[in-house]
Design a protein around this nucleic acid. Structure first.
Lengths: 239, 239
DNA sequence: AAGTGGTCTAGACCACTCA
DNA sequence: GAGTGGTCTAGACCACTTG
């Protein structure tokens, strides 16, 4: 069984894929323990050392959490800890800013040239676009325009997008999120943005241009956030 | 032997420490291969699996590179690839900016309050301060003020600091660098900074406030870079 | 062909959690 | 005390690089 060396992909990577697929498909549910190492090893016909290597990989990818004496649990990607992982703007005190959505609108359309570039799409592919204004302490602090490939979120509805949180949507649609790259630059606020943020036109604002990728490297979301920088900063970690 | 379970620290971590110390002390030199897995395992009296775990750790910490069929080599931390790892400002085209030093001055003194906070020092501890202007395409692009704990760089000379590169100094003084955190914010250029960068006073500039830590979590360098943002952006990666 | 790291096995024992 | 993950062993065999 198990492809008898026909595929050269190491067994522990195949095991990772199989377990990741269970999680993506919702067969293993957030917060619930999966079978222990030796049971899984027996189920897949491998040694426990190999299964452990696969589970370690899953943990490094934030899909599961292992706790000695307890078990291995599927992570809830919408938990505070994991959901805010891509939001790196901090208030002056250092605490993360959690923006509340004050308005949202969704449209669908063919991908623009920049969307094709950022999301690795063809011009004929469709995207959903969500535009948001985020509040912090009841003040508008970010104007956000996000695009996602329509193919990844089939049947995404206006209702879902109104409370748009990419981590929640990804979990719902069985997409496992990996890393993100973010370009931080300075821009002069356009009239429209300045008005929304309640600042003077041509004020310097922070522009956060981000692409989130799935674990399999497919781009999942491109968003540009325009953010009034007063008492705020972007926190990056280089490892 | 080897502390007979008196210490609870797992063996593979102790092995990592021992090998890391050899590298820090210069007993294992950059570019040179270290003994193979089974020789090392024999030398330390452990199984090869345990030694492999230690070597994998060293590789994840960027201290060595392993290549199948070749061997395990100590990394040169001043190589282009590793040295620029903490420099995240990019030109509009996406390429890394390598700044040339146009002027440098070094002073020594007791740590200020902010230096104590960033570098986890006591008020009586000393720091070396290096002030730089960096050029890109022969234009001044960053004013940089760096502070390092004097205790980590005993006898640092003016001559060494003139070509200040933290990765080179760290390797020279046996300090293994780990991660860095960087705060990116917007500031209005002071008169002095504006003059140096050749821009108008009160122009919006990027402020890059960064602390680099050693692998053992000790802060090694705090620096503030003030950078004219025209055609430049900060690139962050979130994993 | 010899030598290296990479994968995999089939266990043993330890440390931790919880009923 | 039963069950979990964490550490460790002593190998075997595979894949890759180099003389």
């Amino acid at each position: 069984m198990r492809s008898h060396r026909l595929s050269r992909r190491p067994v522990y990577l195949q095991l990772r894929d199989a377990l990741a697929e269970r999680i993506a498909k919702g067969q293993s549910k957030p917060g619930i323990a999966i079978p222990n190492e030796s049971d899984l090893a027996r189920e897949f016909g491998v040694s426990s050392g190999t299964m452990r290597k696969a589970l370690d990989l899953l943990e490094s990818e934030r899909l599961v959490t292992r706790r000695q004496g307890r078990g291995t649990f599927v992570n809830d990607q919408t938990s505070k800890e994991l959901a805010l992982r891509f939001d790196n703007v901090r208030a002056a005190g250092g605490q993360r800013i959690v923006g509340k959505i004050s308005s949202a609108e969704m449209t669908e359309g063919a991908a623009s040239q920049t969307e094709c570039r950022h999301l690795q799409l063809q011009p004929r592919d469709h995207v959903y676009r969500i535009r948001h204004v985020l509040l912090h302490d009841d003040q508008p602090y970010m104007v956000k325009e996000a695009s996602v490939p329509a193919a990844l979120f089939p049947g995404l509805t206006e209702a879902q997008s109104a409370s748009y949180r990419i981590v929640a949507l990804a979990q719902q649609f069985g997409i496992l999120l990996g890393k993100a790259t973010e370009n931080v630059s300075i821009e002069m606020a356009s009239e429209a943005v300045a008005k929304t943020l309640g600042i003077a036109t041509a004020s310097a604002i922070l522009v956060l241009d981000r692409v989130i990728y799935a674990l399999d490297e497919r781009p999942v979301e491109w968003r540009i956030g325009r953010c009034h920088p007063a008492n705020r900063y972007y926190l990056a970690e280089t490892t």
